[in-house]
Design a protein around this nucleic acid. Sequence first.
DNA 1: GTCCAGGATCGGA
DNA 2: TCCGATCATGGA
Length: 288
Amino acid sequence: MKVYENNGRITIENVQGFNLKNTFENGQCFRWRECEDGSYSGIAFGKMLNIKKVLNKIEIYPTNLKEYNEIWKNYFDMETDYQEIIDDLKGKDKYLDQAFEMIDGLRILKQEPWETTISFIISANNNIPRIKKIIETISLQFGEKTDEEHYAFPTAVEISEGSIQELRECGAGFRDKYIYNAACKICDESINLNDLIEMDTNEAKKILLNFNGIGNKVAECVLLFSMNKYDVFPEDTWVKKIVKNLYEEESKEFSNVRDFFNYKFGQYSGYAQQVLFYWARLTNLGVK
DNA sequence: GTCCAGGATCGGA
DNA sequence: TCCGATCATGGA
Protein backbone atom coordinates (compact mmCIF):
# COMPACT_ATOMS: atom_id res chain seq x y z
CA MET A 1 0.00 0.00 0.00
CA LYS A 2 1.57 3.24 -1.19
CA VAL A 3 0.20 6.63 -0.10
CA TYR A 4 1.06 9.97 -1.65
CA GLU A 5 -0.27 13.51 -1.82
CA ASN A 6 -0.84 15.52 -4.95
CA ASN A 7 -2.66 18.83 -5.21
CA GLY A 8 -4.96 18.49 -2.22
CA ARG A 9 -5.61 14.89 -3.05
CA ILE A 10 -4.43 11.67 -1.46
CA THR A 11 -3.88 8.61 -3.56
CA ILE A 12 -3.56 5.17 -2.03
CA GLU A 13 -2.29 2.46 -4.31
CA ASN A 14 -2.72 -1.29 -4.01
CA VAL A 15 -5.75 -1.17 -1.74
CA GLN A 16 -7.29 -4.58 -1.18
CA GLY A 17 -10.75 -5.20 0.20
CA PHE A 18 -12.41 -1.81 -0.07
CA ASN A 19 -15.75 -1.79 -1.85
CA LEU A 20 -17.25 1.68 -1.51
CA LYS A 21 -20.87 0.66 -1.96
CA ASN A 22 -20.63 -2.28 0.42
CA THR A 23 -18.91 -0.10 2.99
CA PHE A 24 -21.10 3.02 2.85
CA GLU A 25 -24.48 1.43 2.21
CA ASN A 26 -24.51 -1.45 4.66
CA GLY A 27 -26.29 0.51 7.37
CA GLN A 28 -23.34 1.37 9.61
CA CYS A 29 -23.21 5.04 8.57
CA PHE A 30 -25.74 7.62 7.44
CA ARG A 31 -23.93 10.59 5.94
CA TRP A 32 -22.32 9.19 2.80
CA ARG A 33 -23.91 9.63 -0.64
CA GLU A 34 -23.02 8.14 -3.98
CA CYS A 35 -22.04 10.69 -6.64
CA GLU A 36 -22.69 10.43 -10.36
CA ASP A 37 -19.19 9.13 -11.07
CA GLY A 38 -19.54 6.32 -8.55
CA SER A 39 -17.49 8.04 -5.88
CA TYR A 40 -18.91 8.81 -2.43
CA SER A 41 -19.10 12.10 -0.56
CA GLY A 42 -19.64 12.38 3.13
CA ILE A 43 -18.95 14.41 6.23
CA ALA A 44 -16.94 13.22 9.20
CA PHE A 45 -14.81 14.99 11.79
CA GLY A 46 -16.33 18.25 10.59
CA LYS A 47 -14.94 17.84 7.09
CA MET A 48 -16.52 17.09 3.76
CA LEU A 49 -14.66 14.39 1.89
CA ASN A 50 -14.95 12.64 -1.45
CA ILE A 51 -13.60 9.14 -1.96
CA LYS A 52 -13.23 7.45 -5.30
CA LYS A 53 -11.99 4.05 -6.32
CA VAL A 54 -10.32 3.34 -9.64
CA LEU A 55 -9.24 -0.27 -10.01
CA ASN A 56 -7.33 -0.96 -6.81
CA LYS A 57 -6.43 2.67 -6.26
CA ILE A 58 -8.27 4.94 -3.80
CA GLU A 59 -8.37 8.73 -4.20
CA ILE A 60 -9.65 11.06 -1.50
CA TYR A 61 -10.00 14.85 -1.54
CA PRO A 62 -9.79 17.54 -0.33
CA THR A 63 -7.16 16.51 2.16
CA ASN A 64 -3.43 16.21 2.69
CA LEU A 65 -0.96 13.70 4.01
CA LYS A 66 -1.00 15.09 7.54
CA GLU A 67 -4.78 14.96 7.75
CA TYR A 68 -4.86 11.54 6.17
CA ASN A 69 -2.52 10.16 8.80
CA GLU A 70 -4.36 11.87 11.64
CA ILE A 71 -7.95 11.19 10.59
CA TRP A 72 -8.80 9.24 7.48
CA LYS A 73 -6.36 6.36 7.80
CA ASN A 74 -8.03 5.43 11.06
CA TYR A 75 -11.58 6.33 9.96
CA PHE A 76 -11.41 4.03 6.95
CA ASP A 77 -9.58 1.43 9.05
CA MET A 78 -6.78 1.21 6.50
CA GLU A 79 -4.43 -0.66 8.84
CA THR A 80 -6.70 -3.67 9.24
CA ASP A 81 -6.22 -6.71 7.05
CA TYR A 82 -9.78 -7.64 6.22
CA GLN A 83 -8.71 -10.71 4.33
CA GLU A 84 -7.49 -12.14 7.59
CA ILE A 85 -10.90 -11.57 9.19
CA ILE A 86 -12.71 -13.09 6.21
CA ASP A 87 -10.38 -16.09 6.13
CA ASP A 88 -11.09 -16.63 9.81
CA LEU A 89 -14.85 -16.55 9.25
CA LYS A 90 -15.03 -18.51 6.01
CA GLY A 91 -16.16 -22.09 6.28
CA LYS A 92 -17.87 -21.57 9.62
CA ASP A 93 -21.37 -21.17 8.24
CA LYS A 94 -23.04 -21.79 4.90
CA TYR A 95 -25.15 -18.62 4.95
CA LEU A 96 -22.20 -16.41 5.82
CA ASP A 97 -20.19 -18.07 3.05
CA GLN A 98 -23.08 -17.34 0.71
CA ALA A 99 -23.07 -13.71 1.88
CA PHE A 100 -19.33 -13.39 1.26
CA GLU A 101 -19.85 -14.43 -2.35
CA MET A 102 -22.01 -11.37 -2.87
CA ILE A 103 -20.48 -8.87 -0.46
CA ASP A 104 -16.77 -8.17 -0.77
CA GLY A 105 -14.71 -5.30 0.58
CA LEU A 106 -17.05 -4.31 3.40
CA ARG A 107 -15.08 -2.32 5.95
CA ILE A 108 -16.20 -1.35 9.43
CA LEU A 109 -15.60 2.38 9.67
CA LYS A 110 -14.25 3.84 12.90
CA GLN A 111 -16.80 6.57 13.30
CA GLU A 112 -17.04 9.29 15.91
CA PRO A 113 -18.60 7.98 19.13
CA TRP A 114 -20.86 10.97 19.80
CA GLU A 115 -22.33 11.16 16.30
CA THR A 116 -22.72 7.38 16.20
CA THR A 117 -24.49 7.40 19.55
CA ILE A 118 -27.05 9.96 18.45
CA SER A 119 -27.42 8.33 15.04
CA PHE A 120 -28.37 5.01 16.56
CA ILE A 121 -30.65 6.58 19.15
CA ILE A 122 -32.46 7.94 16.11
CA SER A 123 -32.44 4.50 14.50
CA ALA A 124 -34.87 3.08 17.08
CA ASN A 125 -38.04 1.86 15.39
CA ASN A 126 -37.07 3.78 12.27
CA ASN A 127 -35.94 3.10 8.72
CA ILE A 128 -32.63 3.96 7.11
CA PRO A 129 -33.78 6.64 4.62
CA ARG A 130 -35.56 8.51 7.35
CA ILE A 131 -32.66 8.13 9.79
CA LYS A 132 -30.45 9.76 7.15
CA LYS A 133 -32.90 12.58 6.63
CA ILE A 134 -33.22 13.32 10.35
CA ILE A 135 -29.43 13.36 10.81
CA GLU A 136 -29.03 15.74 7.85
CA THR A 137 -31.69 18.05 9.23
CA ILE A 138 -30.17 18.06 12.71
CA SER A 139 -26.76 18.86 11.22
CA LEU A 140 -28.23 21.68 9.17
CA GLN A 141 -30.10 23.03 12.18
CA PHE A 142 -27.42 22.76 14.87
CA GLY A 143 -24.08 22.02 13.21
CA GLU A 144 -21.33 24.26 11.91
CA LYS A 145 -20.92 24.96 8.25
CA THR A 146 -18.00 23.07 6.72
CA ASP A 147 -18.17 24.62 3.24
CA GLU A 148 -20.75 26.24 0.96
CA GLU A 149 -23.30 23.48 1.30
CA HIS A 150 -22.33 21.06 4.07
CA TYR A 151 -22.77 21.04 7.80
CA ALA A 152 -20.87 19.12 10.45
CA PHE A 153 -22.74 16.94 12.88
CA PRO A 154 -23.37 19.15 15.92
CA THR A 155 -21.48 18.76 19.17
CA ALA A 156 -23.22 17.91 22.43
CA VAL A 157 -22.88 21.54 23.47
CA GLU A 158 -24.54 22.77 20.29
CA ILE A 159 -27.49 20.44 20.73
CA SER A 160 -27.83 21.19 24.43
CA GLU A 161 -28.13 24.87 23.59
CA GLY A 162 -31.20 24.07 21.50
CA SER A 163 -34.44 22.52 22.67
CA ILE A 164 -36.50 19.35 22.51
CA GLN A 165 -39.02 21.18 20.36
CA GLU A 166 -36.38 22.08 17.78
CA LEU A 167 -35.31 18.44 17.60
CA ARG A 168 -38.92 17.43 17.12
CA GLU A 169 -39.08 19.87 14.21
CA CYS A 170 -36.10 18.08 12.66
CA GLY A 171 -38.33 15.02 12.37
CA ALA A 172 -36.86 13.10 15.29
CA GLY A 173 -40.29 12.14 16.60
CA PHE A 174 -40.47 10.60 20.07
CA ARG A 175 -36.66 10.37 20.14
CA ASP A 176 -36.37 14.16 20.51
CA LYS A 177 -36.04 14.01 24.29
CA TYR A 178 -33.52 11.17 24.15
CA ILE A 179 -31.23 13.22 21.90
CA TYR A 180 -31.56 16.33 24.01
CA ASN A 181 -31.04 14.44 27.27
CA ALA A 182 -27.94 12.70 25.88
CA ALA A 183 -26.44 16.06 24.91
CA CYS A 184 -27.18 17.50 28.34
CA LYS A 185 -25.80 14.43 30.10
CA ILE A 186 -22.55 14.68 28.15
CA CYS A 187 -22.18 18.35 29.09
CA ASP A 188 -23.35 18.14 32.70
CA GLU A 189 -21.29 15.11 33.61
CA SER A 190 -18.31 16.05 31.43
CA ILE A 191 -18.45 12.68 29.70
CA ASN A 192 -16.11 12.08 26.78
CA LEU A 193 -17.39 9.15 24.78
CA ASN A 194 -13.98 8.78 23.14
CA ASP A 195 -12.75 7.44 26.48
CA LEU A 196 -14.93 4.37 25.99
CA ILE A 197 -12.70 3.21 23.15
CA GLU A 198 -10.01 2.32 25.68
CA MET A 199 -12.38 0.40 27.95
CA ASP A 200 -13.35 -3.22 27.59
CA THR A 201 -16.66 -4.03 25.92
CA ASN A 202 -18.77 -4.57 29.03
CA GLU A 203 -17.45 -1.53 30.86
CA ALA A 204 -18.15 0.74 27.88
CA LYS A 205 -21.54 -0.84 27.32
CA LYS A 206 -22.59 -0.18 30.88
CA ILE A 207 -21.96 3.53 30.41
CA LEU A 208 -23.91 3.66 27.16
CA LEU A 209 -26.89 1.88 28.74
CA ASN A 210 -27.15 4.70 31.27
CA PHE A 211 -28.37 7.02 28.51
CA ASN A 212 -32.06 7.33 27.99
CA GLY A 213 -33.00 5.83 24.64
CA ILE A 214 -30.06 3.42 24.50
CA GLY A 215 -30.91 -0.23 25.01
CA ASN A 216 -28.93 -3.31 24.20
CA LYS A 217 -29.11 -3.13 20.42
CA VAL A 218 -28.25 0.56 20.08
CA ALA A 219 -25.40 0.17 22.56
CA GLU A 220 -23.91 -2.68 20.55
CA CYS A 221 -24.12 -0.73 17.29
CA VAL A 222 -22.26 2.16 18.92
CA LEU A 223 -19.64 -0.22 20.33
CA LEU A 224 -19.14 -1.91 16.97
CA PHE A 225 -19.20 1.12 14.68
CA SER A 226 -17.32 3.67 16.76
CA MET A 227 -15.48 1.97 19.61
CA ASN A 228 -13.63 -0.87 17.92
CA LYS A 229 -15.53 -3.59 19.78
CA TYR A 230 -15.91 -6.47 17.39
CA ASP A 231 -17.20 -9.12 19.78
CA VAL A 232 -20.75 -7.74 19.87
CA PHE A 233 -23.71 -8.86 17.81
CA PRO A 234 -26.40 -6.17 17.45
CA GLU A 235 -29.73 -7.93 17.29
CA ASP A 236 -32.17 -5.93 15.18
CA THR A 237 -35.30 -6.91 13.28
CA TRP A 238 -33.26 -8.40 10.42
CA VAL A 239 -31.00 -10.43 12.66
CA LYS A 240 -34.12 -11.73 14.39
CA LYS A 241 -35.53 -12.68 11.00
CA ILE A 242 -32.23 -14.39 10.14
CA VAL A 243 -32.29 -16.45 13.32
CA LYS A 244 -35.94 -17.35 13.00
CA ASN A 245 -35.71 -18.40 9.37
CA LEU A 246 -32.19 -19.76 8.94
CA TYR A 247 -30.88 -20.87 12.33
CA GLU A 248 -33.93 -21.96 14.26
CA GLU A 249 -32.80 -25.53 14.88
CA GLU A 250 -29.15 -24.73 15.32
CA SER A 251 -29.66 -21.95 17.86
CA LYS A 252 -32.19 -23.85 19.95
CA GLU A 253 -29.72 -25.09 22.55
CA PHE A 254 -28.48 -21.56 23.30
CA SER A 255 -30.24 -19.34 25.81
CA ASN A 256 -29.85 -16.23 23.67
CA VAL A 257 -28.86 -15.16 20.19
CA ARG A 258 -25.65 -13.50 21.31
CA ASP A 259 -24.24 -16.64 22.86
CA PHE A 260 -25.16 -18.56 19.75
CA PHE A 261 -23.40 -16.21 17.36
CA ASN A 262 -20.37 -15.71 19.59
CA TYR A 263 -20.01 -19.47 19.76
CA LYS A 264 -20.52 -19.73 16.01
CA PHE A 265 -18.34 -16.86 14.79
CA GLY A 266 -15.98 -16.07 17.66
CA GLN A 267 -13.93 -12.89 17.95
CA TYR A 268 -15.14 -11.41 14.65
CA SER A 269 -18.84 -11.98 15.27
CA GLY A 270 -19.48 -8.25 14.86
CA TYR A 271 -18.11 -8.32 11.35
CA ALA A 272 -20.10 -11.47 10.57
CA GLN A 273 -23.22 -9.78 11.85
CA GLN A 274 -22.77 -6.78 9.56
CA VAL A 275 -22.18 -8.90 6.48
CA LEU A 276 -25.19 -11.08 7.29
CA PHE A 277 -27.37 -8.03 7.99
CA TYR A 278 -26.51 -6.40 4.67
CA TRP A 279 -26.83 -9.65 2.74
CA ALA A 280 -30.18 -10.47 4.33
CA ARG A 281 -31.55 -7.07 3.33
CA LEU A 282 -30.21 -7.23 -0.21
CA THR A 283 -31.47 -10.75 -0.89
CA ASN A 284 -34.43 -10.90 1.48
CA LEU A 285 -32.81 -13.69 3.50
CA GLY A 286 -31.15 -15.30 0.52
CA VAL A 287 -34.40 -15.80 -1.36
CA LYS A 288 -33.34 -13.87 -4.44
C1' DG B 1 -57.04 2.27 5.90
C1' DT B 2 -52.87 -1.04 7.81
C1' DC B 3 -48.14 -2.34 8.38
C1' DC B 4 -43.39 -1.62 9.09
C1' DA B 5 -38.90 0.56 10.13
C1' DG B 6 -31.04 -1.36 12.42
C1' DG B 7 -36.01 -0.45 19.54
C1' DA B 8 -36.63 1.48 24.10
C1' DT B 9 -39.47 2.33 27.88
C1' DC B 10 -43.12 1.70 30.94
C1' DG B 11 -46.66 -0.69 33.59
C1' DG B 12 -48.63 -4.74 35.01
C1' DA B 13 -48.73 -9.74 35.51
C1' DT C 1 -38.20 -11.59 34.73
C1' DC C 2 -41.35 -11.34 30.96
C1' DC C 3 -45.01 -9.45 28.04
C1' DG C 4 -47.85 -6.01 25.62
C1' DA C 5 -48.87 -1.32 24.59
C1' DT C 6 -47.07 2.85 23.25
C1' DC C 7 -44.08 6.01 21.30
C1' DA C 8 -43.75 10.07 15.87
C1' DT C 9 -43.25 9.85 11.21
C1' DG C 10 -43.31 8.59 6.40
C1' DG C 11 -43.35 5.28 2.80
C1' DA C 12 -45.32 1.04 0.85
